[in-house]
């Protein structure tokens, strides 16, 4: 016979199983059901699962109750099958094919990667960690502007701001790269599962790097896509967005900027909008859409800090409703679990 499961209850578990209807707890601390960006991917179960901290599987976390909400291959089962031989993302030295200064301290890098990695980085919200020195503390997350699996090439962009990016600028023709990661945006649902609708992308600042992957996915799903560039100067991602015919250039820093956006929203009446920029931009967009009686379906770029990307280092943790959320792993919708009021009714 095959091996039999001999799972017995631990004393803790059996104590909670009093077979009596009287044993009723009326209030229970509600454990949030979080979605994980890596669930079901090559990298699941991850470091967190290994440490007994899976954000999806209650059993891995040590609960008696099996109560996840993940539709797909059971993470607990995968954990048993793959224990010790699952995939892990590791830093590899990769070659810089070309670099181009696009002004204002920003540089675009073309990087050689294996085709599989490049194809994994075509998903909206894709990013990688790169560093210019061997020490891991230099890792910085950079969004993938565009990936070319056929050419074994990805395109990254960064601006010289702090120690990590200055080290990147100083390195010669090789960097360390770790990936793929996908959680660079909030609201994957609104980008990946929308079909045959009209969608607007508002791209400003450094967040414009999210644009090409999002536009590509939206176009493939039969959506009509319009792009609004909200930067003062010429947007450096524009050459990677040639497949989108409708583009508008509006300087959002000018007072008239939002008036123009408002009239565009009124004219195009989009089903949803991706807002790449700062939190102020997201808030203004939401206000304007609500004013125009448009359902504010907004996906946004992400502003959380990330250092390891695996939920381990703790840089990404935010606390909402007394619950710790590891935002680099948790798949959130904009506004979800971010305020103390909470969005759950």
């Amino acid at each position: 016979m095959y091996s039999e499961s001999n799972h017995r209850m631990t004393p803790d578990e059996s104590a909670s199983l009093t077979p009596s209807g009287k044993n009723v707890r009326t209030a229970r601390e509600r454990v949030p059901r979080l979605k994980c960006i890596d669930a079901g991917s090559d990298y699941c179960p991850c470091h967190l699962a290994e440490a007994g901290e899976c954000i999806v599987c209650s059993v891995i976390r040590g609960d008696a109750e099996c109560s996840c909400d993940w539709t797909g291959t059971c993470i607990l089962a995968q954990n048993r099958w793959l224990l010790g031989h699952g995939f892990r993302r590791e830093s590899r030295r990769v070659e810089i094919l070309s670099r181009e200064d696009v002004g204002q301290g920003t540089e675009i890098l073309h990087i050689r990667t294996p085709p599989k990695q490049a194809s994994q980085l075509t998903r909206p919200g894709s990013f990688v960690f790169v560093r210019g020195r061997p020490e891991g503390c230099y890792d910085t997350p950079l969004a993938v502007v565009k990936a070319f699996p056929g050419r074994r090439e990805i395109v990254l962009a960064y601006t010289r701001l702090g120690p990590k990016t200055k080290t990147l600028a100083a390195c010669k023709n090789e960097i360390w790269l770790r990936g793929p990661y996908w959680n660079g945006i909030l609201g994957h649902q609104l980008v990946e599962s929308v079909h045959g609708e009209r969608v607007i992308l508002i791209l400003s600042g450094m967040a414009q790097v999210c644009g090409p992957n999002i536009a590509r996915t939206l176009l493939r799903n039969g959506n009509k896509v319009s792009i609004i560039y909200g930067t003062k100067g010429y947007p450096f991602v524009a050459p990677y967005l040639q497949e989108v015919p409708a583009a508008y250039f509006i300087n959002l820093a000018r007072p008239s900027g939002w008036r123009e956006i408002r009239s565009l929203l009124q004219q195009l009446r989009p089903y949803c909008v991706f807002s790449g920029g700062n939190d102020e931009q997201h808030a203004l967009l939401k206000k304007n859409m609500t004013d125009l009686a448009l359902e504010p379906r907004i996906a946004t770029s992400k502003t959380h800090k990330m250092c390891c990307g695996e939920g381990i280092c703790g840089a990404c943790i935010t606390v909402a409703d007394g619950v710790q959320i590891r935002t680099c792993k948790t798949r959130l919708a904009p506004g979800e679990w971010q305020s103390n009021e909470g969005t759950r009714p």
């Binding site: 091996s3 499961s5 099996c66 059971c74 089962a77």
Partner: peptide, 21 residues
């Protein structure tokens, strides 16, 4: 669901309940 079939049985048997789908 599957987690329980893994813990208390011998894994998902892909039965009529079709949890993975």
């Amino acid at each position: 669901p599957m987690g329980n079939c893994v813990r208390f049985g011998n894994g998902c048997a892909m039965c009529m309940l079709r949890c993975p789908s």
